[in-house]
Protein backbone atom coordinates (compact mmCIF):
# COMPACT_ATOMS: atom_id res chain seq x y z
CA UNK A 1 0.00 0.00 0.00
CA UNK A 2 1.18 3.50 -0.85
CA UNK A 3 0.86 5.97 2.01
CA UNK A 4 1.43 9.72 1.80
CA UNK A 5 2.48 11.84 4.77
CA UNK A 6 2.40 15.64 4.53
CA UNK A 7 5.77 17.03 5.55
CA UNK A 8 7.39 20.39 6.22
CA UNK A 9 10.68 19.31 4.66
CA UNK A 10 12.20 16.70 2.36
CA UNK A 11 13.90 14.56 5.00
CA UNK A 12 12.94 11.78 7.35
CA UNK A 13 13.57 14.03 10.35
CA UNK A 14 11.36 16.80 8.95
CA UNK A 15 8.32 17.63 11.06
CA UNK A 16 5.03 16.42 9.65
CA UNK A 17 2.97 19.24 8.07
CA UNK A 18 -0.43 19.87 9.64
CA UNK A 19 -1.79 21.20 6.34
CA UNK A 20 -2.70 18.92 3.48
CA UNK A 21 -3.31 21.04 0.36
CA UNK A 22 -0.67 23.54 1.41
CA UNK A 23 1.90 21.14 2.84
CA UNK A 24 5.46 21.89 1.69
CA UNK A 25 6.32 18.30 0.78
CA UNK A 26 4.73 14.89 0.53
CA UNK A 27 6.51 11.77 1.66
CA UNK A 28 5.33 8.80 -0.38
CA UNK A 29 5.95 5.64 1.60
CA UNK A 30 5.57 2.27 -0.04
CA UNK A 31 4.67 -0.25 2.63
CA UNK A 32 5.70 -3.33 0.67
CA UNK A 33 9.12 -2.16 -0.51
CA UNK A 34 9.80 0.14 2.44
CA UNK A 35 10.95 2.83 -0.01
CA UNK A 36 10.23 6.48 0.74
CA UNK A 37 10.29 9.33 -1.71
CA UNK A 38 9.75 13.06 -1.10
CA UNK A 39 7.79 15.16 -3.60
CA UNK A 40 7.58 18.94 -3.53
CA UNK A 41 4.00 20.22 -3.40
CA UNK A 42 3.60 22.41 -6.50
CA UNK A 43 0.31 23.78 -5.22
CA UNK A 44 1.47 24.91 -1.77
CA UNK A 45 1.30 28.61 -2.72
CA UNK A 46 -1.68 28.53 -5.08
CA UNK A 47 -4.34 31.22 -4.63
CA UNK A 48 -7.11 28.69 -4.24
CA UNK A 49 -8.01 25.10 -4.92
CA UNK A 50 -4.79 23.72 -3.41
CA UNK A 51 -6.70 20.93 -1.67
CA UNK A 52 -8.43 19.95 -4.89
CA UNK A 53 -5.21 19.81 -6.90
CA UNK A 54 -3.33 17.95 -4.19
CA UNK A 55 -6.11 15.37 -3.97
CA UNK A 56 -5.96 14.98 -7.73
CA UNK A 57 -2.25 14.27 -7.37
CA UNK A 58 -2.95 11.60 -4.73
CA UNK A 59 -5.31 9.80 -7.10
CA UNK A 60 -2.73 9.97 -9.90
CA UNK A 61 -0.05 8.57 -7.62
CA UNK A 62 -2.30 5.67 -6.74
CA UNK A 63 -2.13 6.41 -3.01
CA UNK A 64 -4.44 4.53 -0.67
CA UNK A 65 -3.87 6.38 2.58
CA UNK A 66 -3.05 10.02 3.36
CA UNK A 67 -1.79 11.22 6.73
CA UNK A 68 -2.07 14.93 7.58
CA UNK A 69 -3.21 17.39 10.24
CA UNK A 70 -6.57 18.21 8.63
CA UNK A 71 -8.44 17.97 5.34
CA UNK A 72 -10.55 20.73 3.85
CA UNK A 73 -14.03 19.95 2.50
CA UNK A 74 -12.98 19.97 -1.18
CA UNK A 75 -10.03 17.67 -0.59
CA UNK A 76 -12.13 15.35 1.55
CA UNK A 77 -14.78 15.17 -1.12
CA UNK A 78 -12.35 14.00 -3.80
CA UNK A 79 -10.35 11.65 -1.57
CA UNK A 80 -13.56 10.04 -0.36
CA UNK A 81 -14.79 9.49 -3.89
CA UNK A 82 -11.61 7.66 -4.83
CA UNK A 83 -11.66 5.58 -1.69
CA UNK A 84 -8.47 7.06 -0.27
CA UNK A 85 -8.31 6.76 3.49
CA UNK A 86 -7.62 9.97 5.42
CA UNK A 87 -5.85 9.98 8.77
CA UNK A 88 -5.67 13.08 10.96
CA UNK A 89 -2.97 13.11 13.59
CA UNK A 90 -2.99 15.52 16.52
CA UNK A 91 -0.30 18.19 16.56
CA UNK A 92 2.65 16.97 18.61
CA UNK A 93 5.68 17.71 16.44
CA UNK A 94 6.22 14.19 15.21
CA UNK A 95 8.73 13.70 12.43
CA UNK A 96 7.93 11.85 9.23
CA UNK A 97 10.39 9.15 10.29
CA UNK A 98 8.59 8.61 13.60
CA UNK A 99 5.27 8.35 11.80
CA UNK A 100 6.65 5.72 9.42
CA UNK A 101 8.06 3.78 12.40
CA UNK A 102 4.58 3.71 13.96
CA UNK A 103 3.10 2.51 10.66
CA UNK A 104 5.72 -0.23 10.45
CA UNK A 105 5.08 -1.35 14.00
CA UNK A 106 1.34 -1.78 13.77
Amino acid sequence: MKIVISSEGAEMNSVFDLRFGRAAYFCVYNEESGITEFLKNEHADDQGGAGTKTSEKMVELGVQKVISGDFGPKAKDILERFNIQMVILPDNNRTVGEIIETLKGK
Partner: peptide, 21 residues
Protein backbone atom coordinates in the same frame (compact mmCIF):
# COMPACT_ATOMS: atom_id res chain seq x y z
CA UNK B 1 -4.99 4.79 21.85
CA UNK B 2 -3.19 7.39 19.70
CA UNK B 3 -5.96 10.05 19.26
CA UNK B 4 -5.78 9.79 15.46
CA UNK B 5 -8.95 10.34 13.48
CA UNK B 6 -9.47 8.50 10.22
CA UNK B 7 -12.02 7.77 7.55
CA UNK B 8 -12.95 4.26 6.57
CA UNK B 9 -12.52 2.98 3.08
CA UNK B 10 -14.44 0.17 1.55
CA UNK B 11 -11.77 -2.48 1.37
CA UNK B 12 -9.87 -2.44 4.63
CA UNK B 13 -11.06 -4.45 7.57
CA UNK B 14 -11.92 -1.30 9.51
CA UNK B 15 -11.35 -3.06 12.80
CA UNK B 16 -8.12 -1.30 13.64
CA UNK B 17 -6.77 2.22 13.86
CA UNK B 18 -5.45 3.30 10.45
CA UNK B 19 -2.38 4.73 12.13
CA UNK B 20 -1.25 2.75 15.16
CA UNK B 21 -3.24 -0.43 14.53
Amino acid sequence: NCSARFTLNTDNGNKRCAFCG
